[in-house]
């Protein structure tokens, strides 16, 4: 152990942390989803925001999300060494020191919240601060290693960005913002449980209590099916609360039907290898599902604006 620490130290002396390592700490792939959903929240909100302020808001939300990713990597440095998916992160590889990561995460958190508050309003900034706290403390420190319901509650952190975008424009949080929150919140569990089904051994080795490891594969398949039904219903909610029209409705129903089919297919599969295969395709499709649903929401809104202007 001491030898490993010494080797790490020597490695650090040889190569200082590079710019790319800092970018990796921000979890760019997670960040891209945050930017996208926040952008949609900001776009579909009634009223307007000056392009400079809108751009600043998106940048602040993205940096805030990145900062929470860095804080997550700082805390999870022990288990990141074990899981194949995370072994190449800068901290487990010894390319950066713990202190650098912590200071980087905290500094960016403070700067992003302050920037959002000054550029838009303090409700949006407060929501961003809460999101960072929720992901870095409630999820990473508390829930992730203690309960198989970790991602159910932790999913809220990923669900806040469109709400923050909405609040940045309107200065309040309406039913529409809650609907967008609900879609991502309900999407997270089936998405990650599908991942956990085919990465089960990884989570097992790291001691993270994901549902398949704790309750078994059958229970996970049941959970995924139930959550998928509720998710698809929430996907149609924008139509019901009047924030979207037929274009969105058609997309939501079509995508929802496919999502349910995959969840059902997974539920009825008991052979291990086949089950992993279906879980992988559900995981992949769930990414498209969320992306296309939010594209449809924005497209529907744009169509409404266009038709409104044409009349």
């Amino acid at each position: 152990m001491a030898l490993a620490a010494d080797t790490d130290h020597e490695a650090l002396e040889r190569t200082p942390s590079q710019v790319g390592d800092y970018v990796t700490l921000l979890k760019p792939r997670v960040m891209s989803l945050v930017i996208f959903t926040a952008l949609v929240g900001l776009f579909v909100a009634p009223g307007g925001l000056h392009p400079v302020l809108a751009g600043t808001a998106i940048l602040a939300i993205a940096i805030g999300a990145g900062a929470s990713g860095a804080l997550n990597m700082w805390y999870d440095r022990d288990i990141d060494r074990i899981m194949s998916r995370t072994q190449n992160r800068p901290l487990p590889r010894g390319r950066i020191t713990e202190e650098e990561v912590l200071v980087f995460g905290l500094t960016l958190s403070a700067m992003s919240v302050a920037t959002l508050g000054l550029a838009t309003n303090w409700l949006a900034a407060g929501l961003l601060a809460f999101t960072i706290f929720f992901y870095a403390v409630i999820y990473t420190v508390w829930l992730k290693r203690s309960t198989p319901q970790n991602i159910v509650i932790g999913g809220a952190a990923g669900a806040f960005p469109p709400m923050i975008g909405w609040a940045a424009v309107t200065g309040q949080v309406g039913i529409e913002a809650w609907v967008m929150f609900a879609i991502i919140f309900l999407w997270t569990p089936p998405h990650f449980w599908a991942l956990a089904l085919f990465k089960k051994s990884d989570y097992e080795a790291a001691g993270v209590p994901m549902l398949p490891n704790v309750a078994g594969e059958r229970a996970t398949q049941n959970h995924i099916l139930i959550y998928s039904v509720v998710l698809v219903a929430s996907g149609i909610a924008p139509l019901i609360v009047g924030m979207a029209g037929w274009l969105y409705g058609a997309v939501a129903v079509g995508l929802g039907a496919w999502f349910l089919w995959l969840a059902f297919d997974l539920w009825r599969t008991s052979e291990k290898d086949q089950m992993k295969k279906v879980a992988r395709s559900l995981f992949r499709f769930s990414l498209y599902y969320l992306f296309v649903l939010f594209v449809a929401l924005a497209a529907d809104h744009a169509l409404g604006l266009y038709l409104g202007a044409a009349q």
Binding site: H50, V52, L53, T56, A119
Partner: peptide
């Protein structure tokens, strides 16, 4: 970039 951003925010607001 951060300084330029705050300059722009100030002018806009």
């Amino acid at each position: 970039v951060f300084a330029a951003l705050f300059y722009a925010i100030t002018i806009v607001k």
